[in-house]
Each structure stands twice: as C-alpha cells, then as structure tokens.
C-alpha cells in the first residue's frame, strides 16, 4: 500500500509554482536538515524549469532533538507568512542554514522589511504553533520517514530531489 498524503494540499499550505498544476509536489522538510538544504536548489530548479506545470508545497517537519534551530526557523517562516513573506523567509533561511540562530532569523525578518513587533508576536502565537504541529502530525500520518520526504500527487515518492527532477524531466519530454 503506497503511503498517501493526509490531508491533501489546501489554501492553508504554502505553495508556489503553477496555480492549476499538472503535478503537485509536497515536501516535508526541516530548515536545519542538511539533506533538505541540499534539495533546495534542485527544487528551485524544478520550479524554474517546470513552474508553469508543477507546484511545490512545503510542510514543516522539524526534528527538534536532532536540529535545535529547526523549530525556531519554522516559527520564523510561519510568522513571516503572516506578513505575506513566507517564501522570501523560507529561501533565506535555507541560504544561511549552516549558521542558523535566533539573531539571524531576526536579521532576515528585518531585512525583509517585516513589522518586527508583529513578527515577534506571531512567532509565539497559538495559530503558528498549531500550524507547525499540524504539519508534523500530518507528516507522521502520511508516512514521512526522514527529511526531506516528497509526495507527488499525494503519493510518497521514495527518492531524493535529484530523482524527482529526473522523473519530472522525463515526464515533460
């Protein structure tokens, strides 16, 4: 029985790429996971080349005990989303993954021109905490077995981002 995404992609998710995708990719990831960091440019390449046909959704799966900064980074990204800057924050966090800490997260938020009072409040808001918890639980129930785990059209894709790229390229040609 293939592992199925539960629940499916909804407007409460962060999704970029095609509005009406022919192929829907969901990534469960952790901002401090090196494999997720390595996958990021490949996912961006997929969007660059196939962004008119493919959408990519990112859900939080922070492994807090392994990656002490991962949860705070997820909070920062979700708080930035409250001001319409989710992907800007997401991309910048991955860009400085090696040196991730609380000060850097604040610095990015400030560089993005976020309202900092609101940002700090949102980082601790029950809604943001719940979003991350929901993402994590949905990952557990969908069979996420490491990070990153990708789903393609709701079915777990047992491969890395490079395999995903190859699969999409072959489908497109």
């Amino acid at each position: 029985m293939p592992e199925q995404l539960k629940p499916g992609v909804s407007p409460s998710d962060h999704t970029r790429g095609a509005r009406n995708p022919q192929l829907e990719i969901v990534e469960y990831g952790d901002f401090q996971c090196l494999y997720c960091g390595a996958a990021e440019p490949i996912v961006e390449e997929i969007l660059e080349q196939f962004g008119t046909a493919v959408s990519v959704t990112f859900r939080n799966f922070p492994l807090r005990d392994t990656h002490p900064e991962a949860y705070d980074a997820a909070l920062a990204a979700e708080a930035a989303a409250k001001q319409g800057k989710y992907w800007e924050m997401h991309d910048r966090i991955f860009a400085i993954q090696d040196t991730l800490n609380a000060q850097h997260l604040i610095q990015i938020a400030s560089d993005l021109g976020l309202d900092m009072t609101r940002f700090r409040n949102d980082q601790q808001s029950p809604e943001v905490l719940q979003k991350i918890e929901n993402d994590f639980e949905s990952g557990a129930r969908s069979g996420v077995n490491g990070t990153p785990t990708f789903f393609v059209d709701g079915i777990r894709f047992d491969g890395a981002a490079t395999d995903l790229y190859v699969m999409i390229s072959e489908n497109a040609s």
Binding site: L63, D65, A140, G146
Partner: peptide
Amino acid sequence: VCGDEISLFSQMKPI
C-alpha cells in the same frame, strides 16, 4: 543517518 527510525519515532511520541 539523521532522521533514523528511532529518532523519528521519538519525535512523534506526543502523537
């Protein structure tokens, strides 16, 4: 590996 089975289940313990 990071995210081995035991670490993953440990993180999922609250569920």
